[in-house]
């Protein structure tokens, strides 16, 4: 890691109603990799992700995107490089998948120039990659939870950014759908070298899909590195207060946590 990463948090501090959430946190989101942020509830995972996506303004410190403070750049220009899917987003009734995915093109459009061939192509590609093309004209409320989540991911993909942030994308999904969604995200990352950073609750899924894990505890980075470096017995006990054994996943060879 010689050149600085495109997305970088520098001495970030955030507090809600005087309760500190993030304390002087510095982190890189490695380019072209999948980074997963893990940690116990209320450790500041989502706040870190939202700060990285300029949805949360830090009290001190800054987030640098391409070397410049993200809050000092035009919002539209940031949106052309960085997309974030917030936690459990909601849509108005009657909105179809096609409508939703089309909205992903907003940063490439303006009130005066609204639709181009490029937009149509990006929307079609996003629908195809996520397997949502057959459902394009269905309203979101007529879809299953897994399909709906894929539709939102398709919107973020249509935005066509080099960096994609996802806040707990697997919430409310059953295990097969979690695996399906994360495999989908992994395939974008491998095909287009898109930088991905996401918050996940499940440490085993994090270990399986991440290239890089950031483990937070009480608003600070406890440790970071490859899954093998982070997911250790000692770290799990310190970060999650969880006594466990670590075995090697017999299928993927990644570390696997067995709670005691």
């Amino acid at each position: 890691m010689n050149a600085p990463a495109r997305l970088h948090a520098k001495a970030l501090s955030v507090a809600f109603a005087k309760t500190p959430i993030l304390k002087d946190l510095t982190a890189d989101i490695p380019d072209g990799k999948i980074t997963v942020i893990v940690g116990p509830n209320a450790c500041g995972k989502s706040t870190l992700l939202r700060s990285l996506a300029r949805l949360q303004k830090p009290d001190s410190g800054e987030v640098l995107l391409d070397g410049k403070s993200i809050h000092k750049q035009a919002n539209r220009s940031v949106a052309q490089r960085l997309a974030i899917l917030p936690q459990s987003p909601s849509a108005p009734e009657g909105l179809t998948v096609q409508d939703l995915v089309t909205r992903g093109r907003t940063p490439h459009q303006s009130a005066l120039r609204q639709w181009s061939h490029q937009d149509a192509e990006a929307v079609g590609r996003a629908l195809e990659l996520t397997g949502m093309a057959p459902y394009a004209n269905r309203p979101l409320e007529a879809l299953s939870g897994g399909q709906r989540q894929r539709a939102w991911i398709a919107m973020a993909l249509a935005q066509d950014t080099e960096i994609l942030l996802l806040d707990e994308p697997t919430t409310y999904l059953d295990l097969p759908h979690q695996i399906e969604l994360l495999s989908l995200i992994q395939s974008f990352n491998q095909q287009s070298n898109q930088t991905v950073a996401m918050v996940l609750h499940d440490i085993n899924l994090a270990a399986r899909f991440a290239d890089h894990i950031i483990a937070l505890r009480a608003g600070a980075i406890f440790t970071k590195g490859s899954p093998a470096e982070v997911v250790t017995r000692n770290n799990m006990e310190q970060v999650f207060d969880l006594r466990c054994q670590i075995i090697s996943d017999p299928v993927h060879g990644t570390p696997h946590v067995i709670p005691e």
Binding site: P89, G104, Q109
Partner: peptide, 17 residues
């Protein structure tokens, strides 16, 4: 045009630029 993005919620709208 703006409200098309706003109706997806404030966070999403901001994320869309």
């Amino acid at each position: 045009f703006n409200l098309n993005a706003m109706m997806l919620g404030e966070d999403t709208a901001r994320s869309l630029g």
